[in-house]
């Protein structure tokens, strides 16, 4: 088994431009340091109809109200500003920015435990002996020689589908055939329960695929799937 850079087709080139936008890095940095409530604010505001910040301040009194601490209010303001910048990019661009932000956030959280022997990489494929190469690259990989990890990232639970689950499960099975303990996971910027509902209805095998939902993103810093 080995990792390989994904082919740079036209779609990848366009998407790379989104991934390189400074707004993606800024939002991911803020969300990596955010509370779960701030992450919920980001999910809501990036997908909202209104872009007046006062609307969102009123909607989240635990972040902006009198009871919130000064540090939390200050940080929440930064999260809100970045989220509304995404929303202001327009409906067509929003989904691309949101997807890129979840990927970057995942990479940043995983980076807390990266080592020279287990670097964090982006847009990588996994090749197995005698197996046809996968079409889609993995969003984030931890390329450890002893316990490699692959992550697929989604903005919402609706992104969980049979194709994604089958690819992750197949990779885990093929790695096991080579005596490699490959950890596979799907990271979703959505409520765990919504993700579990989606998984419960899926006929694709996902018994060995870990779910990392909005409430548990910080687990990426410390634990391996």
């Amino acid at each position: 088994m080995r990792f390989q850079d994904a082919a740079r087709d036209a779609r990848a080139v366009v998407y790379a431009g989104i991934q390189a936008d400074p707004l993606v890095a800024r939002a991911a940095t803020l969300l990596a340091e955010a509370t779960t409530a701030e992450r919920l604010l980001a999910r809501a505001a990036m997908n909202g109809e209104r872009t007046d910040p006062d609307v969102w301040r009123r909607m989240f009194p635990t972040l902006f109200g009198e009871g919130a601490g000064e540090e939390l209010r200050r940080h929440s303001e930064l999260v809100l500003a970045a989220s509304l910048e995404v929303a202001n990019r327009g409906e067509a661009s929003r989904s691309q920015f949101r997807g890129a932000i979840v990927e970057e956030l995942t990479a940043r959280l995983l980076a807390a435990r990266a080592t020279p022997a287990a670097p964090i990489r982006r847009e990588r494929r996994v090749l197995f002996d005698g197996v046809r190469a996968e079409i889609h690259p993995y969003d984030v990989t931890v390329e450890s020689g002893t316990r490699p990890e692959v992550y697929d990232c989604k903005w919402g639970a609706r992104g969980i589908n049979a194709e994604v689950l089958n690819q992750l499960d197949d990779a885990q099975v093929h790695a096991a055939d080579e005596d490699v303990d490959l950890a596979v996971a799907i990271v979703v910027m959505d409520a765990r329960r919504s993700c579990e509902l989606r998984l419960d209805r899926s006929t694709a095998n996902h018994a060995n695929t870990r779910l990392v939902a909005l409430e548990s993103l910080d687990e990426l810093r410390e634990t391996k799937p």
Binding site: T35, T36, A37, L40, T62, G69, E71, L72, H75, E215, D218
Partner: peptide, 9 residues
């Protein structure tokens, strides 16, 4: 949602 309710900062 314990983390959400308590805040985890």
């Amino acid at each position: 949602f314990r983390a959400l309710l308590l805040g985890d900062r």
